[in-house]
Amino acid sequence: MSDATLFQPYPLGPLTLANRIVMAPLTRNRAGEGLVPSPLASTYYAQRASAGLIITEATQVSAQAQGYQDTPGLYTQDQIDGWRTVTDAVHARGGHIFVQLWHVGRISHVDLQPGNAAPVSASALRAQTKTFVNNGFVDVSEPRALDIDELPAIVDDFRQAAANAIAAGFDGVEIHGANGYLLEQFIKDGANQRTDAYGGSVENRARLLLEVTAAVAREIGADRTGVRISPVSPANAISTVSDPQPQYDYIVDQLSALGIVYLHVVEGATGGPRDVASFDFGGLRRRFNGTYLANNGYDLQLACARVSEGKADLVAFGRPFISNPDLVERLKRGAALAALNPATLYGGGAEGYTDYPTLAEAHAQ
């Protein structure tokens, strides 16, 4: 497989990726005091720098944006400094790294919110799901609907976090518009019952995502800006009433017009079946003029096929990167993949984080 297109270099904006394999964002709940990346994070990401591109764990753009215990931020100087140690470590290994920026919206708990306030969302509709807080999984709290005059500040939080990302040494940012978090709570009409300029029509429901993307692209450059979407995923109890195809066709047309560097698409249910609902993902690929990054349930065979057929430019792998820091090399050799320990996914220290061996280390043991 060593001569497969998947393993060839790829130009992404101003970068040249060593291969077409991307490490997907993976929440690990290991940030330290002040929600600063822990010293172990530098080791963790550097171990995986052979990926063509690393996209970090989701990182909140403000204190209000947090929805899970011990997830890192990018809105204080200490957080910027902490992330700088990560980006320096990845770059020292010859890697490239984007940070995924999020606001969780209603997927939060009052214990995580400033002043124990209610989480915010497009509408005051509680999600039937849980979050991780106080070292356990609990039901999310009842949200309140954002006032329309609060939305410019949300947009500016993303813009400022993107500027902070560049100050921290990141090669770019990915805007998290997927998996049932705030931007998707506006996009999908199962969570958005607004009657103002941000609700109702396809155009209105897409407005906040597009305003955020435009602001970030103006701040750091469209060639350093990516967006993640999940058109049919039910993650975090998000749902649609109307057909999602026209909604996402419009979104992708607009994102393409903004000239962003890549579109990261969760094809199917996040971490679940690819055929959860009927949807034309190929149509999104044809509508988008930039790089199409495919995600969800990819193995070596499918990834090679989609890239060689031109149906994807890059392919993201998630959990396999946790237990296989040298995933690229293992895929290239057709080697067996190490098993993941689910008990160490969230929280904790080095165990299940930085102690998974490479092939060479495993053979030396």
Rank of each mutant, 00 (worst) to 15 (best):
H176C: 06
F98K: 02
L125F: 01
L112S: 08
D88T: 15
G136I: 04
R106S: 15
P72L: 07
D81H: 05
G94P: 05
Y181V: 12
Y181S: 09
G94T: 01
A161E: 08
R126W: 07
L125D: 06
A92L: 06
V120P: 09
V104Y: 00
V99M: 00
I175P: 12
H103I: 07
G115N: 05
Q77A: 15
E174K: 08
I148L: 13
A161H: 00
A92T: 07
D81W: 01
A178T: 09
A165R: 02
D88K: 15
N192Q: 09
N164G: 10
V138T: 15
G177L: 08
L74G: 12
G95L: 00
F98R: 01
D139E: 13
E184L: 03
D88I: 10
D156R: 10
N116L: 01
F137E: 15
T131C: 11
K188A: 07
D171R: 05
F186R: 02
L74Y: 07
G95E: 11
D139R: 11
T71C: 10
L151W: 02
A124S: 12
A153P: 07
L112M: 03
N135Y: 11
D70P: 03
A127L: 09
K188Y: 01
H96Q: 13
V133K: 11
R126M: 14
N164T: 00
I154K: 07
Q77H: 11
A191I: 00
V155Y: 03
V173W: 00
A162G: 14
A163N: 13
Y181T: 12
S108W: 05
N135H: 14
Q77V: 12
V120C: 02
R159E: 14
D171L: 00
E184V: 01
N134L: 03
F132N: 08
N116S: 14
A122D: 11
F186C: 13
A168C: 06
G190F: 04
G105F: 07
S123A: 09
F158T: 12
I166V: 13
A124Y: 07
N135W: 10
Q193T: 15
G169F: 03
I97K: 01
A145Q: 09
L74V: 13
Q185S: 05
G172F: 00
G115F: 02
Q100A: 07
G115K: 03
S141Q: 14
F158N: 12
V133A: 10
V104I: 05
Y75L: 06
R159G: 09
G105P: 12
H103N: 14
G190A: 08
H103L: 03
H91V: 07
I154G: 04
A92G: 12
I148K: 08
D139A: 14
H91D: 01
F158I: 05
P143T: 01
A162K: 02
Q160A: 12
R84N: 07
I154D: 05
A92W: 00
A168E: 10
E142Q: 14
V110H: 10
G136A: 08
H91F: 04
I107V: 15
D156W: 01
A165G: 12
F170W: 02
D171I: 05
